[in-house]
């Protein structure tokens, strides 16, 4: 007969990464230990490898055509639904940010801005094409028009600070136009990204549109840079990573953009907007004949 426990033992969660709409461990079975602000053990987080990245790219590529073909209105509503999911679980996100060192007021502000930012981009989904595209008055009998199209799979390397708002702010403009994303979460505070993955999973966002990896930048940045199917990189990165990403990108003429936003600046309205969508679209110009 066993002794009566003093209180109930909590069931701890096994953090997993979100790839192709499923929660998985790293294929390598590697993890790294994450501690909370007090230094206590929190959980083992998947330490994703280049193969996990490859798998995520494949999932993103598979989801790409379908996501790009959704109507802009539909993408807008799905992004809005995602904002609803984040808002509904904002307490959990705030608690997690606080647990890893954020001041409560900052955490609350960050999550609120994150929700608002998602809505901002939800609203852009059916408008950016009107502003980035054009009808061009060419000197011949052609109807000539330019439309923005998604680039394909975009690699996102999120900042460590703010770990969640940075990630949301970088993913949202990329998927608003129909790209799919493989994102590497903050290395120092990865857990909020795991939570975000759970919200993505319960939103209407199709699996594979956003894939969230956790792990070490040093291990994964080179693969982000050189994987030819990643057509663009959006990174928050210091000079060394910037150079490494640009060097690797050359082989497949990848588009490389850096967030240019740091720390508390992510809270500002200047950290969002049309040109961040514009950075991840291709412009296609069509010449259509006019004749009877």
């Amino acid at each position: 007969m066993s002794a009566q426990p003093k209180s109930r033992i909590p069931v701890t969660k096994t953090p997993k990464v979100y790839i192709g709409g499923a929660f998985v461990r790293s294929e390598s079975a590697r993890t790294f230990k994450v501690t909370d602000r007090s230094g206590a053990f929190f959980a083992n987080i998947p330490q994703c490898t280049r193969k996990d990245l490859r798998n995520a790219v494949e999932a993103a590529a598979k989801a790409g055509p379908g996501w790009a073909r959704r109507t802009p209105y539909n993408r807008a509503q799905i992004l809005y639904r995602l904002a609803e999911m984040i808002e509904a679980r904002s307490g959990e996100l705030v608690a997690s940010l606080v647990q890893f060192g954020a001041r409560r007021a900052d955490a609350e502000k960050g999550v609120a801005v994150g929700v608002d930012r998602m809505i901002h981009y939800a609203g852009w989904a059916d408008k950016y094409a009107q502003l980035l595209g054009s009808v061009n008055p060419v000197s011949s009998a052609h109807f000539n028009f330019t439309v923005p199209e998604p680039m394909g799979v975009v690699g996102v390397v999120a900042p460590d600070s703010p770990p969640l708002l940075g990630l949301i702010s970088m993913i949202a403009p990329v998927i608003a136009s129909g790209n799919t994303v493989v994102a590497l979460a903050s290395e120092t505070v990865p857990y909020p990204a795991v939570l975000l993955g759970e919200m993505l999973a319960t939103s209407d966002l199709p699996g594979g549109v956003v894939n969230l990896l956790t792990g070490f930048r040093k291990e994964l940045v080179p693969t982000f840079a050189t994987h030819a199917q990643i057509r663009a990189i959006y990174a928050s990165a210091g000079p060394d990573d910037r150079k490494a990403l640009r060097l690797g990108a050359a082989a497949s003429v990848k588009r490389v953009r850096f967030s240019g936003t740091e720390g508390a600046a992510w809270l500002n309205d200047a950290a969002q907007g049309l040109e961040r969508i514009g950075d991840f679209v291709e412009l296609k110009t069509t010449w259509h004949p006019i004749g009877a």
């Binding site: 054009s134 061009n136 008055p137 060419v138 000197s139 011949s140 000539n144 330019t146 680039m151 057509r231 497949s252 003429v253 291709e282 412009l283 296609k284 110009t285 010449w287």
Partner: peptide, 10 residues
């Protein structure tokens, strides 16, 4: 045409 954007994918 000067008014027609030109450039590549990939």
């Amino acid at each position: 045409d000067p008014s027609s954007p030109f450039g590549g994918y990939k």
